[in-house]
């Protein structure tokens, strides 16, 4: 992974992190957290830890689904 790629994927992760803080909508926050992981995944792959990447990318959605249990829509916007 050379410098340009590092910068690009770091940009993805940082955009996700900052927007996860700034978003006010709950689904917007969750999507932004997904973007953070999208930026991190290439870093894991570039170091060659593919088994870890497989396991992590299956567990992160599970975490999101667990959070979704308390994200019913009727509580907030129309």
């Amino acid at each position: 992974m050379d410098d340009l790629l590092v910068l690009l994927f770091a940009a993805v992760a940082l955009i996700g992190a900052v927007s996860a803080h700034l978003q006010r909508d709950r689904f917007g926050k969750l999507i932004a957290v997904g973007i953070v992981f999208g930026g991190i995944a290439p870093f894991i792959a570039a170091r060659g830890y593919l088994d870890v990447l497989i396991a992590v990318s299956l567990i992160v959605p599970v975490t999101t689904i667990i959070i979704l249990l308390i994200c019913r829509r009727d509580a907030h916007d129309a």
């Binding site: 999507i31 997904g34 995944a41 299956l58 959605p61 689904i65």
Partner: peptide
């Protein structure tokens, strides 16, 4: 795995 996982996440959201 990444693609299926993130698709599942999008689906659930």
């Amino acid at each position: 795995a990444y693609f299926v996982g993130s698709t599942l996440e999008a689906n659930a959201i």
